[in-house]
Computed example of a mutant assay.
Amino acid sequence: MAGPHRLRPEDRADFEAVLHLALSTADIRAALLADPTGQAARHLRTHALEAADEITAESGDSYDAYRAVRSSAPHGPEHPPSKATLLSALSVLTPLVAATSAAILLLLGYVLQLAEISGSLPASLVTAGWVLALIAAVSTLTALTALLRTALQQRGGVPSADRLEQARITWQQALLDRGMLPHLRRRISEDPLLRAALPKPSPAGPDDTVRHIP
Rank of each mutant, 00 (worst) to 15 (best):
T140V: 01
L175D: 12
G119Q: 11
R163M: 07
R149G: 12
P80M: 02
L114A: 13
H75Y: 09
T94Q: 07
L96R: 06
Q172P: 12
A103R: 01
V158E: 02
A52K: 06
A161L: 14
S124C: 06
T145V: 13
A123S: 13
H79R: 05
I135A: 09
T46C: 00
S71N: 09
S72L: 03
S82F: 04
G60D: 12
T85Q: 14
R42T: 14
S160Q: 09
Q113K: 07
S139E: 06
G60M: 01
L108W: 07
S71C: 07
L132P: 09
R42G: 08
G76H: 01
Q172M: 13
G156M: 08
T150H: 05
T150L: 06
G76E: 03
L108G: 12
R168D: 04
L112N: 14
Y110A: 11
L121D: 14
G60S: 14
A73W: 03
L164T: 09
S101V: 05
R45S: 06
S91H: 09
S62I: 04
S160V: 03
S72E: 10
G119L: 03
H79L: 12
L125R: 05
L105N: 01
A136N: 03
T94W: 00
S160F: 04
L148K: 05
A174W: 03
T142H: 07
A51R: 10
A137P: 09
L121Y: 08
A103D: 13
G157V: 05
H47C: 10
L108C: 14
A48N: 04
T150K: 06
L176D: 02
L96Q: 07
A128M: 12
L44R: 11
S139H: 00
Q113H: 06
L148F: 04
E54M: 15
L132A: 08
A103W: 04
P36V: 10
E50K: 11
S120A: 15
L49C: 15
S118A: 13
L125W: 01
L107W: 07
A128C: 13
L152V: 14
G129M: 11
A143Y: 02
G156Y: 04
